[in-house]
Nucleic acid binder design. Structure first.
Length: 592
DNA sequence: TTCATACCTG
DNA sequence: CAGGTATGAA
């Protein structure tokens, strides 16, 4: 199939582009007209992401000039009317504001968002958490909007089929030629890509001298559009689902940690909502199914995992805060701000204000505010959308490198709307190439079970992390630091006990109300939202006694007197509850 | 040398 | 907690 992914990436207004093509086609657009439409689309095609240091160089000024061209403006006006037409939701009250309204909403806030993004240019993790919470709060509305979106897509597909079926014969080979050289990859420029279009099926057809049976442009267009519709749809579905799903993971974590679960309602809600989120059937059903299925598989495997009876640890059920339950309920009830959902949805679909199409609906762009033309390069190119094949191999369709996150943070639209997008991604169980504060928190809780985790163990418990040498050593380093703190504290209290005149090491015991426990708990479980396993108390008690005895015996004169103690303690690691493997666990822990 | 870890420091 | 250094094994 044609590679339209560059043009029809989620970073673009796919629907609008399709409508543009359809309109040209339907209204008997000449070949030249079609070419213009495509040339226009080409102008919108994402260019390579400018690195931060180059942002000011305006080397692509000519692109901006092109964009400002009068003719293109006329095109934009046309498209805008189309967008407005299709933006009217069938049941307006259900969605509050349509997509168009979402544009307006963004436009209103564009100015401050720009300022804010300058203020906090790159705090990809912390700065987005609140936004994520806000964005994800309205999952219910999101679901509804997604249904609406699917309707729209279905309509588009129907329309497309009609057009293509009736217009096959009318198409010329020239038309086909004009269709095919579309950007093949996110972030690729048109000119570069058309030169490298050798892998293009159409061209291959020609190369084989197969022009006689050359698929008509309409058919090619149809296939490509259907494909891309499916891709985009599944992407949206995946995104929304993953925004919702971490909550389910939390239920798992709770279950595994023998915490009274908030009741089946919340989970049922998730599954019920799944009906609505069902991807489009015909065009490419397995696409969305891939990741959806894997998510379900994860859930099931987690839910049917072995009972953690031996795991004493659990999230505090008596504490004032029950963050997991609270957040879950929040999601289930869908207490949402429709406007924000619209924003998120539009962002998910690439209706970004920083995109060309976004500016269409924004009317005349105010140049100073909108900044240099680079924004049009749609930083979606920085998001590694893996092919569906790869997607099925790994279970995580999206991978964000640190550079990617940085780019996202630097987005001119990195404020608000886009932050919600980033936040949504942040919350979704994507493979991350950086360790987040959520991972840190998770690691700290894991320390209650294991003081000396192997790198392989870490890999099995940080499934949402793309492990690299650097990541591994960072995690190892974390646990090394944990141990350091742990032993320092224990040693301190051992010496203190000695000074207090304790004679029998056997009387030393770490209980939940001992000072030592308080110190440790404060460090590894600050929010006290995790109930420390009793096993950890035993280990701490033993460590305390060992230190006590060693110091009392005067072994601390030996520079390596701690080594034997370390050796003893290193054998006391216990199993970590399976719940810690749950996808989204890291993210959710952070919000608790 | 490279890599991993322990120890120390800010 | 991360950075730096020292140390030792491969």
């Amino acid at each position: 199939p044609l590679r339209f992914s560059g043009l029809l990436s989620p970073g673009h207004n796919t629907c609008s582009w399709i409508l543009q093509c359809l309109e040209d086609y339907e209204h008997g657009a000449s070949a030249g007209e079609g070419v213009q439409a495509l040339a226009f689309a080409r102008t919108c095609a994402p260019a390579p992401v400018p690195c931060a240091s180059n942002r000011d160089q305006l080397s692509d000024q000519h692109l901006w000039d092109q964009f400002s061209d009068q003719h293109l403006q006329a095109k934009r006006a046309r498209v805008e009317s189309i967008i407005q037409g299709m933006s009217l939701p069938p049941t307006p009250q259900a969605f509050g504001k349509g997509l168009e309204a979402a544009f307006g909403h963004e436009r209103e806030r564009g100015g401050e968002m720009l300022l804010e993004s300058k203020r906090k240019p790159r705090v990809p993790q912390q700065g987005t958490r609140a936004a994520r919470r806000v964005a994800a709060k309205g999952c219910q509305q999101l679901k509804e909007q997604l249904c609406f979106l699917e309707q729209q897509l279905r309509q588009l597909q129907e329309k497309l089929s009609q057009v293509c079926d009736s217009g096959d014969a009318a198409q010329t080979q020239e038309g086909a030629e004009k269709v095919h050289p579309l950007p093949g990859k996110l972030g690729d420029r048109w000119d570069k890509d058309s030169a490298a279009a050798t892998s293009d099926p159409c061209k291959e057809d020609e190369d084989r001298g197969d022009t006689g049976t050359l698929p008509s442009a309409a058919r090619v267009l149809s296939q490509a559009l259907k494909h891309e519709l499916a891709v985009v749809t599944s992407w949206v579905v995946d995104s929304v689902l993953k925004t919702v799903w971490p909550k389910a993971a939390n239920h798992l974590l709770q279950q595994h940690c023998s915490l009274p679960v908030p009741g089946p309602d919340a989970r049922r809600e998730h599954f019920a909502a799944g009906k609505c989120r069902k991807p489009l059937g015909k065009p490419c059903p397995m696409k969305a199914q891939g990741s959806l299925g894997s998510l379900q598989a994860e859930t099931l495997s987690g839910a049917s995992g072995k009972s953690p009876g031996s795991h004493a640890g659990s999230f505090s059920s008596k504490g004032v805060r029950k963050p997991f339950q609270v957040s879950s309920v929040g999601y289930s009830l869908g207490l949402a701000n429709p406007g924000q959902d619209s924003q998120l949805l539009s962002q998910l679909l690439g209706y970004g204000q920083h995109g060309l199409w976004g500016s269409v609906s924004c009317g005349t762009p105010s140049a100073p505010e909108r900044g240099p033309p680079e924004p049009f390069d749609l930083h979606w190119g920085t998001v590694k959308l893996r092919s569906s094949v790869v997607r099925q191999q790994h279970q995580h369709p999206l991978s964000l490198s640190p550079a990617d996150m940085e780019s996202l943070a630097l987005l001119p639209a990195g404020r608000d709307g886009c932050r919600e997008l980033q936040a949504a991604m942040d919350g979704a169980p994507f493979m991350q190439e950086t360790l987040t504060p959520g991972h840190l928190k998770k690691a700290k809780l894991m320390f209650f079970f294991t003081r000396y985790p192997s790198s392989t163990l870490l890999k099995t418990y940080f499934l949402d992390v793309q492990f690299s040498r650097c990541i591994t050593s960072q995690l190892i380093k974390w646990f090394s630091n944990f141990r350091e703190f742990y032993y320092i504290q224990v040693e301190k209290f051992a010496r203190q006990a000695l000074l207090e005149g304790v004679v029998d090491a056997g009387t030393l015991r770490v209980s939940r109300d001992s000072e030592l426990f308080r110190a440790l708990n404060m460090h590894y479980n600050k929010g006290n939202d995790f109930e420390v396993p009793g096993r950890f108390l035993e280990v701490a008690s033993l460590t305390l006694r060992e230190f006590f005895s060693a110091v009392r015996a005067g072994k601390d004169a030996d520079p390596s007197w701690k080594k034997p103690i370390y050796k003893i303690i290193s054998k006391l690691d216990s199993d970590i509850p399976e719940g810690f493997k749950a996808t989204g666990c890291s993210q959710e822990l952070l919000h608790s």
